[in-house]
Nucleic acid binder design. Structure first.
Lengths: 165, 165
DNA sequence: CCTTTACGGATACTATATATCCGAAATAGA
DNA sequence: TCTATTTCGGATATATAGTATCCGTAAAGG
């Protein structure tokens, strides 16, 4: 099916929450999970990925949890997606052109000097995808949410978070 | 990992072969599989997908096999990829924003009128990917192969195919 | 000292991708 | 007419990746 993991969606939403948080505040994975209605333990794995990528920072102990490690205007969608999904291309070239039964060893070497034309197209498409995600910043998302979501909902959400961390 | 099926790669290479074929000639899946060094039965499934999408046409009986059903200049990479992989987006929005515990039914309805901002970005990225693949035609690939692959190799390949269909 | 947290590893479970097999229908040639 | 060859669709098996949970450790706050 060629789908991104659901953890990617969760990570994006969690970053959206963390980026809108007042300076210094942290939110534990447990609360983020409850807020989004997703399994805590599994979401934790995604958050670990974000932490490992230096996007968020986790602090230990009670009153601990996650906060942004970078300014939201310095984090792109691509950063977040790659942190949990990995950086591999969606197209894996297995060089089947080389299995052509009617090439000599020398011809194989000659052809092998150039990249496979099919792979090149697929990889360029991947790059177009990445380029789009690279162009949207977490700060853009926060701004859009601020415009599109009724302020009362935002206020209630903030209060709900304040209530439990 | 979020990878395309290997059948996508096979289908692209097979189309590259079929598109360079002289008018009226057909190549059975068995031969295409041997030419690319991939399992016959499984490649057959990919070819069925291409046939169902109207990209290639399969003819029955001895001397049967596959041929292009459209002009190569009328078939894009996207057509081939979608025929095998399907047309679903790589990002599935599960609307977890709606699971926010502090929204009333009415607020939920209000928010639900606009599409999720995160999904919109991801879907736009998908569209950029598709747009790139839409812009490269099978005829472009054939032309590139003609330029980049030594003509002796092409001639030998053609002869090899003539030998068995 | 006790609770809460992130972190990392180990372990199930589930869904998808990969691969094979079989029977049916069609077709060309003997 | 008979046989060989092909596509086609369905059924089935296997491998791999995604989903989810559990546990022990270390760190930090009250």
């Amino acid at each position: 099916m060629m789908q991104l993991k659901n953890q990617v969606e969760w990570a994006l939403h969690c970053c959206s929450v963390l980026a809108a948080l007042p300076e210094g505040k942290t939110v534990p994975a447990k609360v983020l999970a409850e807020f989004h209605g997703v399994p805590r333990e599994y979401l934790a794995k995604a958050m670990q990925g974000l932490a490992q990528a230096g996007i968020v920072a986790g602090t230990l102990g009670p009153t601990g949890g996650y906060r942004m490690a970078k300014d939201p205007s310095d984090v792109s969608f691509l950063d977040i997606v790659e942190a949990v999904e990995g950086k591999k291309s969606t197209f894996a070239c297995s060089e089947i052109r080389m299995k052509n039964p009617c090439m000599t060893k020398q011809e194989r070497k000659c052809v092998g000097e150039r990249p496979c034309g099919i792979a090149k197209v697929m990889w360029d498409a991947d790059e177009a995808w990445r380029e789009h995600l690279r162009g949207v910043l977490l700060s853009d998302l926060v701004a859009a949410v601020g415009e599109e979501v009724p302020s009362e909902v935002l206020v209630k959400g903030e209060a709900w978070l304040n209530d439990r961390c």
